[in-house]
Every structure is written in C-alpha cells, then in structure tokens.
C-alpha cells in the first residue's frame, strides 16, 4: 500500500493531473455554452410572437440540450466523475434514467389537466385552440367584467 492513500478501501492511489489547463478549458466551454443559450434566449425575445410554434419549441429544446451539455461538463470535469472508474459512473448515471419517466409522466398528466379544464371535462369545445391569444381561464373571467 502506498502511503498517500486517503482511506483503507482505496487500493490504488489516484494520480492527479498537474496542470490547471483542463479546468480553464472547461470554464471557457461553459461560458461559451451559456453565451449561446443567452443568444437563443434573446432570439426568442426579439422574435416574440412572430415565430411559428414549431420553431419556438425547437429553439427551446435546443436550449435544453445545451443545458444538458453544461451539466455534463460540470459533472464530468469539475466533479471529476469522468475520472472515476466505470463502476462508479454507472451507479450514478443509471439511476438518473428514472428522471425520463418521472418527467414524461408528470408533464403528460399536467397537459391532460389543461385539456380537462379548457373543455370542462369534455363537455364543451376547447376555445383556446381557436383563439389567437392563449389565455388563462382565471384571467379570461376577470377580463370580461
């Protein structure tokens, strides 16, 4: 056993990289990704109301993808997960897959509530689908008074 092990469960001393260049490189990557995100955000802001729905949605999805990329860099390099051995990476990453169904099911049901509310349990036509400005039902009521 080498003398610089931090704990008895560790059987091999990890070698630490000596330079800080990788850290700074990651910093610049994160900054660049953030700037691109901001750019897309401003794009949505300036073109607000003029873009087709599909383009708005895909821009938002692109921003979400960039966020995931940022998360990857933070976890993999700043938190050194990428340097850990494969066993550990898998036990961290695999349980996070639960989030896929967690998110999908919740949002799916949220959208179902919107339909139930807009159609009053399916008993009247959904007006928001035909109106140009989508409005919150509560606001709709207030506005009429």
């Amino acid at each position: 056993m080498s003398s610089n092990l931090t704990s008895p469960e560790i059987t091999y001393a990890p070698e630490h990289a000596s330079g800080t260049s990788r850290i700074w490189k990651t910093f610049w990557v994160l900054s660049a990704l953030t700037v691109i995100e901001l750019g897309l955000g401003y794009f949505l802001y300036w073109k607000h109301g003029q873009l087709p729905y599909a383009l708005t949605l895909s821009t938002k999805l692109l921003i979400a993808a960039l966020t995931l990329a940022k998360a990857y860099y933070i976890v993999s390099i700043f938190m050194h997960l990428g340097d850990e051995i494969r066993n550990m990476i898998m036990t961290i990453v695999v349980p996070l897959m639960l989030f896929i169904w967690f998110i999908a099911a919740f949002l799916w049901d949220g959208n179902a509530w919107k339909n139930l509310r807009n159609t009053d349990g399916g008993s009247r036509p959904d007006k928001t689908k035909t109106e140009q400005h989508q409005q919150h039902p509560a606001v709709d009521k207030d506005a009429k008074k």
Partner: peptide, 30 residues
C-alpha cells in the same frame, strides 16, 4: 487525475476494497 496506475483486470467487486476505488465518504457524498 488519470487512472492509468490502476490495472484493468482488477476484480473490483470481490470485497476487501471499494469497488469504486473511492473512500466511503466520497461515495456517500455522491
């Protein structure tokens, strides 16, 4: 930190050591 020092054919899961080559504290934090 590179992990080149670690032989690839280590039987990580056989007990007597951490399967992650990490201390309990770090595993717990994760």
């Amino acid at each position: 930190m590179s992990t080149t020092a670690i032989p690839t054919n280590t039987k990580w899961w056989n007990g007597g050591r951490s399967p992650f080559n990490a201390s309990y504290g770090k595993v717990m934090m994760w």
